[in-house]
Design a protein around this nucleic acid. Structure first.
Lengths: 360, 360
DNA sequence: CTGTTAGCGCTTTCAT
DNA sequence: ATGAAAGCGCTAACAG
């Protein structure tokens, strides 16, 4: 077992034709004598020939692979239900185009840059990094098209969601219910933006919360802000830390469902009754939100769509069709079991996929 | 934006050296005059050069990519928490080796075979297919090493879990508690074995259940067997179907957590009190099991390990190190909230990673 | 230390 | 309808 021994030349020889003919037999079978084509395919079968994807890609300049680049360990991301949903969207689009999906992330030893440089892809979906990020320069150099998800873009397409709006609606909901002692659990190091703590998804959500406080003329207190690792355990710790600091929240705003679920678990263990004594709102509406007990009230973002749209945008770019667009998908407050039934109010209304076609 | 214009020759020209020198500058910088190396890298930067992964792969015969092949739509698999956990394991091993992970699955239009043929990988982890499966022939031809997960292998390494044992323990637990009217929810089309309804993972689990019935001398009744789609919704339907058929189960055995969770939901809605009036045992111990309300008693298989071990075995094969081994990982019955506390019994004990080194 | 020379395996005009 | 020839962009002996 091991090296691909049989090449197109072997087949050609065996079938008594030229390599060209063999290549044709694969790609333009019609332009070949029926009998010849048969003979060639027979030789292919006898010899057990399979074309080299690398040689093919080298000359045809495409491999049929869409890359997804994440600035994290490629194992770790699968602990995050967000990515499963996102990749489901990307994968669906790939399947529709007979492509496969390459997941590229930070290696343990080497550098992300190296891994990127070697990635055999037609294009990249870059998650959680701004277009200006240093490590994506090689891509631009290689002329590999890419789109940005959850990050800012100048010259390429991007897909984001209305994080601020969603966050603001969540906070407003709590504030309207009279809460003043609201614990805010943020990302310790914002969601994928390793180098840039004040921006990125976490920053936007935070700004949304703050906006709601301003709108409601409720004073924002930084001591009520606890940075937490973006995991269930992180949420648990965050809540406990708050308690130990002497905070006695009546409500919790968490920038992710995982954190919210952790807070919920810690709260339950600390004998808080949810939602009677403590209301909690998460973010994302991953499977965690639906499944937790009680199910989590959360800000929903259309994650699967986000993935699918990103892939489609990339496909557009690959086909040189369509110009750069910046998509902003809507978010929606989903009321479930960790908040009390609100007095009658109109449900949040907002525009569907707002596709803004623009340059800069 | 678009085609990679600048090649190694351009850089060489610019730096006044040969292409070889440029290549060296990347791979053996030490073997080059310090000043020369500097000059070359400067040219690289000025020209914005990035090597072509395809050309590189063509000649060096490796790309740094591990493929994961699933016989399903590459979007759909992410609905299944099993895969998230499995890919976490594979991804972790990849990250440790500075590799990326390619997910290949059935396309919508084309054939799996074509997608496989074009996949730029060093090797494949094949999930849920036996070694003899037709569509993996091209791989063998191309000389691409592969390992099998959840399937039978003759000549290559494989990773499986003790499905039968786990299933049998689950059934025995229920039978020992006195249950006789046990609803069995199986895969409609066994878990990834599209063409082969009696084998594969689903078949093994089924055999495990049956074994326990035999051991307990309880008659096995085929009418109590309901094939269900492998999803929460499928489990819900399966349970409802059983009810409509007039079955009145006091316990449920489900071949996956998703199905079990669906049955649980349907049962709850039908006013069954779980576990008092109905005990339920799932399979896999995915996140679904932990999160459901009440948390699911289930047969745990070490999914993340399975992925990591598969990747390591493949890495071994790629390095021509180690011979084919067939790993069988242990399963364990995890008692949670959907079964009643059993009378005192010794906990299940069993061997850890039993690595059987053998040929054929 | 650095350049010359061959390919890696395939596709693709351009002839025939 | 089929073949010859010229690369795609890079690496790796082998010289010098």
């Amino acid at each position: 077992m091991g090296t691909s021994r049989v090449t197109i030349a072997d087949v050609a020889r065996r079938a008594g034709v030229s390599p060209t003919a063999v290549s044709f037999a694969f790609h333009n079978p019609d332009q070949l004598g029926a009998e010849t084509a048969q003979r060639i395919m027979a030789a292919v079968r006898e010899l057990g020939y399979a074309p080299s994807p690398f040689a093919r890609a080298l000359v045809s300049r495409q491999v049929g692979v869409l890359g997804v680049l994440v600035p994290q360990g490629i194992g770790a991301i699968f602990e995050n239900p967000f990515f499963a949903a996102f990749l489901q969207g990307v994968g669906t689009a790939c399947a529709e185009q007979d492509r496969s999906m390459l997941v590229v992330g930070s290696p343990v030893d080497g550098t992300l840059e190296d891994v990127i440089a070697r990635a055999p892809v037609d294009g990249f979906i870059i998650v959680g990094l701004n277009e200006g990020y240093r490590e994506i320069e090689p891509l631009r150099r290689r002329g590999v098209p890419f789109v940005i998800v959850d990050g800012d873009s100048e010259t390429v397409s991007s897909v984001n969601v209305d994080d601020e709006g969603g966050a603001s609606r969540a906070a407003a909901h709590l504030l309207a219910a009279g809460h003043r002692d609201v614990l805010v659990l943020t990302f310790e190091t914002p969601y994928g933006h390793l180098d840039d703590p004040l921006h990125g998804v976490g920053g936007r959500r935070l700004r949304g919360y703050q906006q709601a406080f301003r709108d409601a003329r409720v004073a924002w207190r930084d001591q009520w802000l606890i940075p937490s690792v973006a995991s269930v355990e992180g949420g648990r710790q965050g809540f406990l830390t708050a308690l130990r600091s002497g905070l006695r929240p009546t409500a919790v705003l968490a920038v992710s469902d995982a954190i919210a679920a952790g807070a919920l678990a810690a709260a339950a263990r600390a004998e808080f009754r949810v939602p009677e004594e403590l209301e909690i709102i998460g973010f994302d509406d991953t499977i965690l939100a639906e499944l937790s007990c009680p199910p989590l009230t959360t800000v929903r973002q259309p994650i699967v769509d986000k993935g699918r749209i990103a892939a489609e945008l990339l496909l557009d770019a690959l086909a040189d069709r369509g110009s750069a667009e910046r998509i902003v998908l809507p978010t929606e407050l989903i009321l479930r079991g960790t908040t009390r039934a609100p007095e009658i109010r109109t449900r949040s209304r907002h525009n569907k996929h707002r596709r803004t076609d623009d340059g800069v």
